[in-house]
Design a protein around this nucleic acid. Structure first.
Lengths: 141, 141
DNA sequence: ACCGATTTGCGAATGATTTGCAATTGCGTT
DNA sequence: AACGCAATTGCAAATCATTCGCAAATCGGT
């Protein structure tokens, strides 16, 4: 079980290894991402980072998010159109179930679905690069 | 096998039945949608409609798209973030495979995946309201 | 054809994200 | 420990897709 602190260290090590300059702002943003247990959007990340270090700007949050995404360190989602949401990519792959009433995001993983997807793509003559599976559901009353 | 002309007629009949006013612009936009074999975005729809009738504006395209979506006549997708794409909803349900190299969108349907999704949601205590499954793949060389 | 409510086009407003630019900063080199 | 400069930053202005306000045009029942 990886801790936020460990995740943070790994983030920094990987970035340094990739030749990325570790600025104060980037470290703070990465720390916020490492500690996030949810799927925050850019603005939420900005606010959390700003509390830790008032020198972080929204622009830099956006620039850093793009940087991290390009490095494969985080993943971008668009559960609700118009606002991207992020999560660190080091955790195991999983899909999302969004509660349409509360907006709550539940993570799950199904080997069978993964397998089935690969089979379907293969039948169509493709190899899957990535996929997006989002279930929008309502809690059973 | 339904023809574009038939689809167009059904669109109009359904809208009229729903008490929607059939303006010139709406008819043109609906016709363009009925004839579309791809997944055009608002701007593309606007251009196609404008050719048929220069009195169509982009605002009205957006308003009509929202209207049609609310009536369940079309479906909105966001394959690429930041730009919504549309398709008529009268066809059978299907998912999408997007060729990451060409952007081509291939439609497919798998009963097994549908079933599996319902099972997973049920295990988590949910009923599926809708879902989004997009495979992004590369053609096998 | 008439009339009132609905819909339209226009341009301005919005909200998320990006960008230009001058000032600041990380970090390899002295 | 200071130097130098390219990379990075904050800010404000720009962008991009989409929405909105409002006066003018239009639908469709009478």
């Amino acid at each position: 079980m990886i801790t936020p602190a460990q995740r943070y260290e790994r983030f920094l090590t990987d970035l340094k290894a990739a030749g990325v300059r570790l600025t104060e702002q980037r470290k703070v943003i990465v720390k916020v991402l490492a500690e996030a247990h949810d799927h925050p959007n850019a603005d939420e990340l900005y606010h959390r980072a700003y509390v830790l270090d008032g020198s972080v700007s929204l622009s830099t949050v956006y620039r850093t998010l793009r940087l991290l995404e390009d490095h494969g360190a985080i993943q971008r989602h668009d559960f609700d159109a118009g606002r991207a949401r992020f999560e660190n990519a080091d955790t195991d792959h999983h899909d999302h179930l969004i509660d349409v009433d509360t907006g709550q995001v539940i993570e799950f993983r199904s080997e069978r679905i993964e397998k089935l997807q690969a089979e379907i793509a293969a039948e169509l003559g493709f190899d899957i690069v990535r996929h997006k599976l989002e279930l929008y559901g309502r809690r059973r009353g």
